[in-house]
Lab assay of single mutants.
Amino acid sequence: TRVETATETAWISLVTALHLVLGLSAVLGLLLLRWQFPAHYRRLRHALW
């Protein structure tokens, strides 16, 4: 049971790290898009909202 718990903890930390990385890359990508294509971003936002 001790090994299982350790594996579970490792998986949880791995998944958390993955989610953090994905979230950060998504935010960075959005910022980059907004910085590179302001007109396109505004049009996209206008279409979405």
Score class of each variant (00 low, 15 high):
1 T>I: 13
1 T>Q: 13
1 T>L: 14
1 T>P: 07
1 T>A: 13
1 T>R: 10
2 R>F: 11
2 R>K: 13
3 V>C: 05
3 V>F: 06
3 V>K: 06
3 V>R: 04
3 V>M: 07
4 E>W: 12
4 E>L: 12
4 E>V: 14
4 E>P: 06
4 E>H: 14
5 T>V: 04
5 T>M: 04
6 A>H: 02
6 A>E: 06
7 T>K: 14
7 T>A: 13
7 T>P: 12
8 E>I: 01
8 E>K: 07
8 E>C: 08
9 T>H: 08
9 T>K: 12
9 T>V: 13
10 A>Q: 11
10 A>R: 06
10 A>Y: 07
10 A>I: 07
11 W>C: 07
11 W>A: 00
11 W>E: 05
12 I>P: 04
13 S>I: 13
13 S>R: 05
14 L>Q: 05
14 L>C: 05
14 L>K: 02
16 T>C: 09
16 T>D: 00
16 T>E: 03
16 T>V: 14
16 T>H: 05
16 T>K: 02
17 A>M: 10
17 A>H: 05
17 A>D: 04
18 L>P: 02
18 L>K: 04
19 H>M: 01
19 H>E: 06
19 H>W: 03
19 H>V: 01
20 L>H: 05
20 L>Q: 05
20 L>S: 03
20 L>V: 12
20 L>P: 05
21 V>H: 02
21 V>S: 13
21 V>R: 06
21 V>N: 00
23 G>N: 04
23 G>P: 02
24 L>H: 05
24 L>C: 08
24 L>N: 02
24 L>D: 01
24 L>Q: 08
25 S>H: 05
25 S>K: 06
25 S>C: 14
26 A>D: 06
26 A>F: 13
27 V>G: 10
27 V>I: 14
27 V>N: 03
27 V>Q: 00
28 L>N: 05
28 L>M: 11
28 L>D: 02
28 L>E: 02
29 G>Y: 05
29 G>P: 05
29 G>A: 14
30 L>E: 03
30 L>C: 14
30 L>T: 08
30 L>S: 09
30 L>Q: 05
30 L>W: 03
30 L>M: 11
31 L>K: 09
31 L>E: 08
31 L>R: 07
31 L>A: 14
32 L>N: 03
32 L>A: 14
33 L>G: 09
33 L>A: 11
33 L>T: 06
33 L>I: 07
34 R>V: 00
34 R>G: 06
34 R>K: 15
35 W>G: 15
35 W>L: 15
36 Q>R: 15
36 Q>L: 10
36 Q>I: 15
36 Q>Y: 15
37 F>E: 05
37 F>T: 08
38 P>H: 14
38 P>W: 01
38 P>I: 12
39 A>W: 10
39 A>D: 09
39 A>P: 14
39 A>K: 15
39 A>Q: 15
40 H>L: 09
40 H>S: 08
40 H>M: 14
41 Y>G: 11
42 R>M: 07
42 R>C: 10
42 R>I: 06
43 R>T: 12
43 R>H: 00
43 R>D: 05
44 L>V: 15
44 L>K: 03
44 L>D: 02
45 R>D: 01
45 R>A: 10
46 H>A: 00
47 A>M: 08
47 A>H: 13
47 A>D: 10
47 A>G: 10
47 A>W: 11
47 A>N: 11
47 A>F: 11
48 L>Y: 14
48 L>G: 01
48 L>H: 05
49 W>V: 00
